[in-house]
Design a protein around this nucleic acid. Structure first.
Lengths: 195, 195
DNA sequence: CCGGGCATCCTGCCAGTGGCAAGATGGGGT
DNA sequence: ACCCCATCTTGCCACTGGCAGGATGCCCGG
């Protein structure tokens, strides 16, 4: 990996260092349970150094969100083809990289209209839409299927991260595995007690 | 209603006034886009007055969350009986009272283990579980059906509030109505292109 | 080899914030 | 009539985000 020189007046890779510190802090105390100054201290620079790279706090979180959407897109694209697997990948991303996910879906914390963020988000959505296109039969159903699947995965991820599913599902199972089962239940239809 | 005396040294109903100011502020700038001092100013009291009623910021948000879960429980119980209606009521609550919803599902902002909150949350969950009990055929399916329906409603609400569904669904439709359609799609099963 | 330009980082400052301590007020019970 | 004490106030402290102006040293042209 080649650790870059981090001594001297110029840090060398402050931008990445602050982003990493931010992700770590977010994982520990939530998306706003820390201060820019604290990140600066962790990175070993002065309290005003991060501002040069991100402008302000919203700027930093904007960068985090953009990186998060890009990473999510990668994950989803890797699972493309199988509709159910896309849902599982969505949940897996949220569970394994909660810091990104938590920021991404709190638009009031960053500049959601930032070009980089918007582009990365559009890429994520494209995978979801194409997944629904494959699963839905008639075209009118496409939108509803996409909304249902997206809502399902998104809701499961959110509830899991909030700890709301802890009691009902902590039989030691992998959350993504449980999500797959839930997804299958919905795909077969949970309205009529079939089978 | 009877507007209570709000002149003089004793406000008369500061607790409620601060809660209302908080709900208003949350609706405007998110669950942490305001300060306790600002709420105090809105209520016309000194900056330290709210502390007497709520302790600290987390205490105030704990009270908001408890009230929110109680209100959600009321809504859900009113729709009990029809499983799909419970889902629609869940979404309707989130959409019509976003300030409550936003706080409730950000456990890092308040004391989630507060007895009042825990009790109110348990009441909400009971409705969901009993709803699933009616819809699921076999008892093993019960948990999966409950998770699927809850995830679906929760995810739809979250996506809607984040504005993520804006483009794909703002044909002027009522969100709860759209949620009903999505719910129906899932209930019938969206995996196989049935019908 | 040298000198300047400029991205990077620093120190200093300000208003605003959350929270605590100690004092003022006055409503309500006895 | 009196006192108790819940309620509200003023005053204070450490900390934060953000801005202004200065210091540093890498890199590039000469």
């Amino acid at each position: 990996m080649g650790t870059i020189s981090q001594q001297g007046y110029h840090h060398g890779n402050l931008r990445r260092a602050v982003m990493d510190a931010a992700l770590e802090a977010i994982g520990e105390t939530g998306p706003s349970g820390w201060s820019l100054r604290e990140l600066a201290r962790r990175a070993g620079v002065s309290h005003a150094a991060p501002a040069h790279h991100f402008g302000d706090k919203a700027g930093l979180l904007t960068a985090v969100a953009a990186e998060g959407y890009a990473a999510l897109s990668d994950e989803l694209e890797r699972a493309d083809g199988d509709f159910g697997e896309v849902g599982a990948a969505y949940v897996r991303f949220a569970v394994t990289r909660p810091a990104y996910w938590t920021v991404m879906f709190r638009p009031e914390l960053y500049r959601a209209d930032d070009p980089a963020v918007a582009a990365a988000r559009a890429r994520s959505r494209a995978v979801l839409v194409s997944g629904a296109r494959g699963a839905a039969g008639r075209p009118e159903r496409e939108r509803l299927v996409m909304l249902a699947a997206w809502s399902l995965a998104h809701g499961f991820a959110g509830l899991w991260l909030d700890g709301a599913l802890a009691e009902s599902a902590e039989d030691g199972r992998d959350p993504a595995e449980l999500a797959r089962a839930v997804f299958r239940t919905a795909a077969e239809g949970f309205g009529s007690p079939g089978d």
